[in-house]
Design a binder for these strands. Structure first.
Lengths: 180, 180
DNA sequence: GACGATACGGAACGCTCGCCCCGGTTGTCA
DNA sequence: TGACAACCGGGGCGAGCGTTCCGTATCGTC
């Protein structure tokens, strides 16, 4: 691979991270090319479709989320770990339209590799069942419910502008998930 | 107004109700024209833009929601009235993509007349404050929070397919709103 | 320094969709 | 029943966007 090709690939990926984070997957690809300082053709030489580029960006983001989830697994209080994860995830996604678009699409991360997808949700499952065993979360919720609630919470949060209001909404939703 | 014109206007409106309900505002206008059995030109003769047609459809739906809200105002138990309204609204919207698109757009019903919009949310406010006075709902929530939570709940609900799961999600979110 | 391979930019293509226009038709009223 | 205004259908226009193509520039090597 030629040096300029590698350099341009990096540039495109970095620009795509920024632009997708700001505007979500709906942004025109030309905008990404422009921000990267390359032509549209160059983008397509490195990524076969716009969606593939989006996947590549999301894969990176999911790695970060997974690192967080993994760290929380060792927390003393499984209930607190779960709720921290929930709040953190919602906040991350509310700041990153790429992440929220990916979450909503087709019931989960439609983007990112299959194995990343699977291991991420396996981690979520562990946090959830841990919290349920500790009596902190309603026992009748499964990982699908949690995903749905994260997506819903995300949507609720970006209906309001005031960050204090957003925090309150997260609190409301978390309260609803607690065991009675 | 000529008889055929009035007839076609009705047809278009009825087709638009169905099609928007099924597929949301993103549906091509040609599809509505086709279902109404008229040409696209005819649609535009009766409604200046696609958005105006959508508004007209939504206005009708909001009337129905308002009738429900109004009826619940006289309920003995203000808490139950509020939660019934919440659940009912979410279920209505989850069956009607027009309604959910309208709700999400631009922080509330961007469609429908201003006065319909205002009086609808005034009714919601009454149900909310009633439930709060009765000690059934957290006192720190306002109508904006409720709107955000309805939108969020809606999104959560259409992440799952099983109706029992959907009901459970509504229950979770309602529980979160209850006063402690 | 010259040459072949590789990569680049951006114009062009095809598609979708909102909206407009015009030649033909239909309803209304004298 | 005839004439005219109102109305109709659907092809067409223009804009936006994903994707492709090709003439040109750049890189790496001998």
């Amino acid at each position: 691979m030629r040096a300029d090709a590698r350099r341009n690939r990096e540039r495109v990926l970095r620009a795509a991270e920024d632009v997708f984070a700001e505007q979500g997957i709906a942004v025109p690809l030309d905008e990404i090319a422009r921000r990267a300082g390359v032509g549209a053709g160059t983008v397509y030489r490195h990524f076969p479709t716009k969606e593939a580029l989006f996947e590549a960006v999301i894969a990176g983001r999911v790695e970060v989320l997974m690192a967080d989830a993994d760290r929380l697994r060792a927390h003393d209080d499984p209930g607190a770990a779960f709720f921290q994860f929930f709040a953190h995830k919602v906040k991350q996604a509310s700041l990153n339209k790429a992440l929220s678009d990916a979450l909503e699409a087709s019931r989960g991360f439609r983007y990112g590799t299959q194995e990343t997808h699977d291991s991420f949700w396996r981690l979520v499952d562990e946090l959830l069942t841990g919290a349920q065993r500790a009596g902190a979360v309603r026992p009748d919720l499964d990982r699908d419910d949690v995903r749905a609630l994260i997506v819903g919470c995300l949507r609720a949060v970006d209906q309001v502008t005031d960050p204090a209001k957003a925090d309150r909404l997260i609190e409301v939703m978390a309260d609803g998930m607690r065991a009675k």
